[in-house]
Structures are given as structure tokens and as C-alpha cells.
Design a protein around this nucleic acid. Structure first.
Length: 662
DNA sequence: TAAGTCACG
DNA sequence: ACGTACGTGACTTAT
């Protein structure tokens, strides 16, 4: 059969013949289809196909009736209806995607499919019997009642918008974005439009279709009520339809249901609070550092131009590549994926041994990075009203269950260099408070010990040994106190490498040793820790056989490419599969800890607030007088977040700034 | 918008 | 023979 024909046939077959719960990775036809899509460059199709897990049964949208609430009697009827309902989908319409700046413009509700309500609150063309406050007060008892169940799409946003409007939303029991994420974390998007297409086969109206785009885009309050009602009503109704589609899939697996109900949903108000509170920044300090870096950068630039023999843009890898490898004829150490000679850090590091220019470039690069991403940019992110920095934590982005942080990203603030650490000094506690930073020590290795059940590894953690030193003693066959710092460094690289599914080649590169020695280290490691080797093999097998791997708590990560005939893709999928249970379990554990810490703070009304999460670390702002008790409680919450076969060790420190708290 | 680079766990 | 350590987000340059 010609390839194009085969492609069409396969796609038709896959679309019509696949059961909802089946996983693409285990279907023999799936892989062929993916390969063909890729070969023909159908990237959009390919992405959509891989995401949907071949789960679309066509559209059955039916008619949607949206009632615009403009009279008091309509409002009364709606209030009565929401009180009577078991579960209500609702959605807020606002003037901004940034909840801190968003003003409430309207509210949409759906109780049954096919019908929705929209209450305009402050549209320009609004003509209602009531004003905004009247609506808020009539709905407040229901919105704030934890016993009245609410459903939404990304309710963290609505929670913060309503908080700003003086409403403390309670009773959040379902979120379709999180349901989709728990069901399929490796799908790239979990926004409502994508979910509607993927799961309902419904194409929803986009914001741009209603409001226009670019310079002429309308704010939501400028959109005519009639148009706004259709758009908002659809959002609420689609959310309800999505819930009815996704919830049974999650309920079908008790552990998945627990991840959703006990981790993700309870985390929503915790994250909402953290974002709302933000963190204090010492902008003056950053400004001083920026000026210092500025001076150093111009010096380095002048020096680089001199060493290169001409002027060029140090920020351009292309120009640098021309200078280093064409004009100065330095040896090409490595190439980028596109075949260009790489100028990445480790490459320049290697060249720096023999040449001046790479050294200068490296210094320049790292300082330029610090300045443009941190010392210059962070102060711009201080919110004018609160005077603090408010990141956004994303709960449905990573494949493994971790959070991510954007705008600004507070999960990649420098720490590894002295100059970088100065930036942490600018994250401060306000007067009368200190920052408390508490992190899990070696949590992923502890999880590896737990999951692999390796006797020797469990013993080492039980004995409270320095794990890298213990590994070195095993691999290099010497006493603990005879381990050299070089040996410990190698052991540390082995430990990390293992969790990433590293090969002998990779370890050799990392440690700058020959391939043979690296292979010998790994072999030696597996002789000493046979449980770990068995575990790695069992993960590969599990991934291959069931098409997904799980965390300790049952979060699933699909491994669609594990059976690919392309060895590179297959191996990449294997490495991801090996890492996911460890990274993912750590993510589950800290989420449990966050819920516990926040619960304790709220219950005790403790003078402390969670302000940041950095994967294995929690940062709190604590009133000075309460430091000892808060520290104790936080450590306990974190330690007790999971019961593993090894102890969970928490290291906590405090100080006037984030650097001092470490 | 993609590619390269680099900040973090 | 294949390519070579997991997971993120932001910035800069070049197209």
C-alpha cells in the first residue's frame, strides 16, 4: 500500500476502533501511524494524536441555552438553583488574566448540560436591576459554603479573583484541568479549548473570536452582554461536560482518584494563597549588583574583543562559533543537534584549559545571564499594589507531577556560585519576620532506596550515613573514612546518573574519565546494590508492558515511545520512565507536606505563611517570635508526609534572607 | 518562532 | 546501529 494511503487508513482505523482506556503505546498500529505522521511532517496532527490517546468519538454538543440574568427574580431563581444542585460548574469573567489585577466582570454557571446562566456584573452596556454588590451578597453564602460543591477549569485563578473581590470561595471539589492532568500528564495542554476538542470533539469559541485581537482587543467588560453571555455560558457548560467525561476515568483507578482528590484538589487553595501572598524583594540590593555586573561586563567584552582580534556580539552563539572555530581554528569539541559546533559551557570549559578567549566568554555569559534574568528583571516583577513578587505556580505542566513556576520563575534562582547567591540575599523577610527554608535531604535517592528495596542502600540511609560517601566506599572498596573527595565526587555523579538512567558513556563524559572505567564503576555499583539494578530493569519492563509507570502514590506517567523502533526515542523513553517514579514520588510527597503545613497554619492561625516551593524545599515567612514552634511544625509535616522504608530527613534554617536561611 | 544557552532541583 | 543524564522556564539572537 502506498504510504499516503496507509497513513489515511491507519488514522481512520485508530480514530474509530480504539477503546477509551487503551494506551497508544501498546497498540501495534499506533507506532506505525506516529512514524508516518512524523515522516510526512504532519506535526500538528501528530501532536494532537499523541495527546488525545486516540480518544475522540466525534461531536455531540447539542444545543446550548444561555440565560442572561438581568432581573432580581432571575437572580433569586439562580441562587435557589445552585443551592439545590449537587455540583455546580462555574466560571468568572474578568478584565485580566493576571488575578492580582483582575476585576470581576461576570459569573457563569452550569448545573446540567445544555443550559447555562450568565450574570453580568459590570459590562459597559449592562442593563440590570441589580448592581455588582447585590449579586455578590446574594451569592456569597453559597460561594463561601464548603459543603456546596463547585467545579471549574483552573479554579486557582477564580479563587484569587474572588478573593480580591472579597469572596472566600469554598467547596472546590473538582477541577477539569487537574482531572485531565492526572489522567494524562504528558499531554502538552490542559486548557479548556484543547480539552473540549480532545475529549468532547467540540470546538469552543475562543476569547479572540469574541474580543478580537491585538491593539483593538476588547476588555471583557467592553464586550456586549449578549456576546459575553454566549461565551461565558459555554465555558461553564463545557466544564461540566468535561467533568462528566473525565471523572469516571479517574474513578476507575482508586489510586489515581486519591492523587486527584487528596493531592491535587486540596493543593489548589494552598497554591492560590502562596501566589497571592508573594515574597518580598530587596530591589535596592539588586540594583547595586546590577551596576557592579554592568562594569564587569564591559571590561570582559573589551577583553574578549581584544582576544578575538575584532569586535563581535558576545551574546550570539553564531558569531562566537565563527570566531572560535573558523577564525581562531580552535578544535571542535562537540556539535549542537543541528550540526553546528557547540559553544556550550562544558565545551568552553574544556577549551578554557588551553585558550584565553573561552574563559572570558564563560565569565561574560554567566554574568550576563545573572543580570538579564535576575538582577534587572526581578525588580520589574514587583507588583505595584503589594510591593512583592507574585509568581504563578503551574499545577498541570510537568510530566512527572512537579510544579512549575513562571513570571517570574522562582524555582531557578541562582545558588551555585557566589555571585549568584547574592541574588538570594535579595529575597527577604519584612520587618519582624524571618525566612524559614526547609528542604528534604536526598529525597530522590531515599525514594530509590524505598522503591528498589535494596538492602545495602536502605542500611546506609537507616544508619544516617553520607550517602555519596557510602556509595564511594562500596564502589571503590574502601573504608568510609578512607574515601577521598575525588572518590566521593565520582560516587555522587554515579548516584545522580543512575536516577537519570545514564549510560557508561554519559558517566565517562561527566567525570572526564574513559568509557572503560565508567563502565567498571557502574558494574561495580550494581554488584554492590543489586536491588537497584533489578529495580531499573523492572521499571523498563513495566513501562514496556503497561505503557505507563507509577509513583508511590499511584500517579501515572505514560511512556508512549517505550516500544518505538527508533532506538534513540526508545532509550529516551526508558530514561524518562526510570526517572519518573523517583521525581514524581518526591513531587507527591512535597505536595502532601504543603497541604499539611498550610492546614496547620490555618488551623492554628500561626503567624507564618508559605511563600515558595522549589521542588524539595519550602520557604516560609515567619514572625520572629514564633520561629521555633513553626520550624518544629514544618519539619514534622514534611517528615510525616510519607512513610518510607528509610527516614525522610528535613534540614531547616532561618535568617533575614533566603541565602542566610540555608 | 526556533535554536542555543543556562539558571534551578 | 543509535545516541548518549531526568524535569523545568527565561533570555538572546537570528530567521
Amino acid at each position: 500500500m502506498p504510504l499516503a494511503r496507509e497513513l489515511v487508513a491507519l488514522r481512520t482505523d485508530v480514530e474509530t476502533g480504539v477503546e477509551l482506556e487503551s494506551l497508544p503505546g501498546v497498540r501495534p498500529d499506533h507506532e506505525r501511524l506516529v512514524e508516518l505522521l512524523r515522516r510526512f511532517g504532519f506535526s500538528t496532527w501528530l501532536k494532537q494524536y499523541q495527546e488525545e490517546g486516540a480518544d475522540s468519538q466525534g461531536s455531540d454538543a447539542g444545543e446550548l441555552e444561555v440565560e442572561t440574568v438581568t432581573t432580581r427574580s432571575q437572580l433569586d431563581a439562580l441562587v435557589e438553583a445552585v443551592w439545590a444542585a449537587d455540583l455546580v460548574a462555574f466560571d468568572t469573567e474578568t478584565t485580566s488574566l493576571e488575578p492580582l489585577d483582575a476585576e470581576l466582570v461576570g459569573l457563569a454557571f452550569a448545573i446540567e448540560c445544555g443550559k447555562a446562566w450568565y450574570i453580568p456584573l459590570c459590562h459597559v452596556d449592562q442593563n440590570t436591576e441589580f448592581d455588582r454588590d447585590e449579586v455578590v451578597e446574594s451569592l456569597r453564602p453559597w460561594l463561601e459554603d464548603p459543603a456546596r460543591a463547585k467545579l471549574g477549569q483552573n479554579l486557582k485563578y477564580d479563587l484569587n479573583v474572588l478573593e480580591r473581590a472579597g469572596i472566600r470561595l469554598a467547596g472546590v471539589v473538582h477541577d477539569t484541568m487537574l482531572a485531565s492532568y492526572v489522567f494524562h500528564s504528558t499531554a502538552t495542554r490542559h486548557d479548556m479549548g484543547s480539552l473540549a476538542v480532545r475529549y468532547l470533539g467540540r470546538q469552543t469559541t475562543s476569547y479572540e473570536q469574541v474580543a478580537g485581537k491585538g491593539r483593538v482587543q476588547l476588555r471583557f467588560d467592553q464586550i456586549p452582554v449578549a456576546d459575553a453571555a454566549e461565551y461565558a455560558g459555554e465555558d461553564a457548560e463545557v466544564t461540566l461536560a468535561l467533568h462528566r467525561h473525565l471523572w469516571p476515568k479517574i474513578q476507575a483507578d482508586g489510586r489515581l482518584q486519591a492523587v486527584y482528590e487528596e493531592l491535587e484538589i486540596p493543593l489548589i487553595p494552598v497554591l492560590a494563597r502562596m501566589e497571592r501572598i508573594g515574597v518580598a524583594l530587596d530591589c535596592e540590593r539588586l540594583a547595586v549588583q546590577s551596576r557592579e555586573i554592568e562594569g564587569q561586563l564591559s571590561e570582559l567584552q573589551a577583553r574578549a574583543h581584544e582576544e578575538a582580534g575584532r569586535e563581535f556580539n558576545l551574546g550570539s552563539p553564531m558569531q562566537l562559533q565563527a570566531i572560535l572555530f573558523e577564525e581562531l581554528k580552535l578544535p571542535v569539541v562537540r556539535k549542537t543537534p543541528k550540526g553546528q559546533p557547540s559553544t556550550a559551557e562544558d565545551v568552553l570549559q574544556e577549551l578554557a584549559a588551553d585558550y584565553e578567549l573561552p574563559r572570558t566568554i564563560l565569565k561574560h555569559r554567566s554574568l550576563a545571564k545573572l543580570k538579564s534574568t535576575y538582577t534587572d528583571r526581578l525588580p520589574e516583577k514587583v507588583h505595584q499594589r503589594t510591593g512583592r513578587v507574585h509568581t504563578h505556580y503551574h499545577q498541570a505542566v510537568t510530566a512527572t507531577g512537579r510544579l512549575s513556576s513562571t513570571d517570574p520563575n522562582l524555582q531557578n534562582i541562582p545558588i551555585r556560585t557566589t555571585e549568584g547567591r547574592r541574588i538570594r540575599k535579595a529575597f527577604v523577610a519584612p520587618a519582624g519576620a524571618v525566612l524559614l527554608a526547609a528542604d528534604y535531604s536526598q529525597i530522590e535517592l531515599r525514594i530509590m532506596a524505598h522503591l528498589s528495596d535494596d538492602e545495602r542502600l536502605l542500611e546506609a540511609f537507616a544508619a544516617g550515613e553520607d550517602i555519596h560517601r557510602a556509595t564511594a566506599a562500596e564502589v571503590f572498596d574502601c573504608a568510609l573514612d578512607a574515601v577521598s573527595s575525588e572518590q566521593r565526587r565520582a560516587a555522587k555523579a554515579i548516584n545522580f546518573g543512575l536516577m537519570y538512567g545514564m549510560s557508561g558513556w554519559g558517566l565517562a563524559r561527566q567525570l572526564e574519565i574513559d568509557r572503560k572505567s565508567a563502565d567498571a564503576y557502574i558494574q561495580r555499583y550494581f554488584e554492590r546494590y543489586p536491588g537497584v539494578q533489578t529495580y531499573m530493569e523492572s521499571i523498563r519492563k513495566t513501562a514496556r508492558e503497561q505503557g505507563y509507570v507509577e509513583t508511590l502514590f499511584g500517579r501515572r506517567l505514560r511512556t508512549d515511545e517505550i516500544r518505538s523502533r527508533n532506538p534513540a526515542r526508545r532509550q529516551a523513553a526508558e530514561r524518562a520512565a526510570i526517572n519518573a517514579p523517583m521525581q514524581g514520588t518526591a513531587a507527591d510527597i512535597i505536595k502532601r507536606a504543603m497541604i499539611a503545613v498550610d492546614g496547620w497554619i490555618q488551623a492554628e492561625n500561626a503567624p507564618a505563611r508559605l511563600v515558595m516551593q522549589v521542588h524539595d524545599e519550602l520557604v516560609l515567612e515567619v514572625k520572629e517570635g514564633a520561629l521555633a514552634s513553626v520550624r518544629e511544625a514544618v519539619e514534622t509535616c514534611m517528615r510525616d508526609a510519607a512513610e518510607l522504608k528509610v527516614p525522610l530527613l528535613v534540614e531547616a534554617g532561618s535568617g533575614p534572607d533566603w541565602d542566610s536561611a540555608h
